[in-house]
């Protein structure tokens, strides 16, 4: 007996299938123009590539910004917010987790969970991009660096330049300003990463920090941001063993198992 979770976000879509014991299969793809299309594609690939018999899926929960449309199309039986799903998924992967930081391309969330992964409190950014992966993307582009390089290059910085953590538009202008003044990309990148970390730290303070703490989402891959954040919050950020992109879909599958009576 299987339970499934489908997470259709703004950039990627994932599906995870679990049984009573744990993860059976998962798949992650880039999104298609329509959320339903993304959901169908990722499920099809799971069936074809990993031989999952979708008929054995007893209950499926959708999450992510396309969650309602996916349910309306009949691909899932219920939908749950990505906030609850992330909390649940993180709690399953790291049972002692109490604070979940997830910084994606458009969204930044900090989630407080209880022992069983249940949602206790959360904050999420408003439309301002300053605390999201988008912020890093824009600054990396201005610096002519890839996202990966933005993280690694800053370890060779001699000093960390001051950059605005309040607004991504301000920050972009400042990056240009520093470039024109001949500062090294490493020093600027260090400033960008610190500004990003400051923004995330501000979100964390809003819900309060309780250990253990995990960090996921695209931004978690930037080691410099992680290091800054660990320093600011004086805490170790736990990485998942599994691909951190699937945390939301995994949470949805766990929700499905609960709703479908599987535990």
């Amino acid at each position: 007996m299987y339970y499934a979770g489908i997470d259709v976000g703004s950039l990627t879509a994932q599906a995870v299938v679990i049984n009573a014991k744990g993860i059976v299969a998962y798949k992650s793809i880039g999104v298609k123009p329509h959320p339903v299309q993304s959901a169908k594609t990722v499920v099809d690939m799971l069936i074809q590539e990993q031989g999952i018999n979708w008929n054995e899926v007893k209950f499926c929960v959708s999450t992510g910004y396309g969650r309602e449309q996916v349910q309306a199309e009949g691909l899932s039986q219920d939908n749950v917010s990505e906030i609850s799903c992330h909390g649940m998924g993180a709690s399953w992967l790291v049972p002692d987790v109490r604070t979940v930081i997830d910084i994606g391309g458009q969204d930044a969330k900090v989630i407080r969970v209880g022992k069983g992964g249940e949602l206790v409190d959360f904050v999420m950014n408003d439309k301002c991009a300053a605390g999201t992966g988008r912020f890093l993307e824009v600054q990396a582009r201005t610096l002519g660096l890839s996202l990966d390089e933005l993280g690694t290059v800053s370890f060779s910085a001699e000093r960390t330049l001051e950059l605005s953590s309040r607004c991504s538009i301000f920050c972009e202008t400042e990056v240009l300003h520093y470039l024109q003044r001949g500062h090294t990309k490493a020093d600027i990148a260090a400033g960008v990463n610190r500004a990003m970390a400051e923004r995330v730290a501000a979100l964390v303070r809003r819900v309060g920090l309780e250990k253990e703490v995990t960090m996921s989402g695209g931004v978690a891959k930037n080691a410099a941001v992680r290091a800054e954040l660990e320093r600011m919050l004086n805490v170790r950020l736990i990485k998942y063993d599994t691909d951190s992109q699937i945390v939301g879909a995994l949470g949805a599958a766990l929700m499905a198992r609960k709703m479908g009576g599987g535990s």
């Binding site: 910004y65 749950v80 917010s81 990505e82 609850s84 949602l119 206790v120 959360f122 950014n125 439309k127």
Partner: peptide, 24 residues
């Protein structure tokens, strides 16, 4: 719910936050 007035672009995020609150 701190929000920008009249921001249609933020509707999805507002709904997500409300739904998560209901789940809480």
């Amino acid at each position: 719910l701190e929000k920008d007035y009249g921001s249609k672009a933020d509707t999805g995020r507002i709904k997500t936050r409300v739904q998560a609150f209901l789940e809480r």
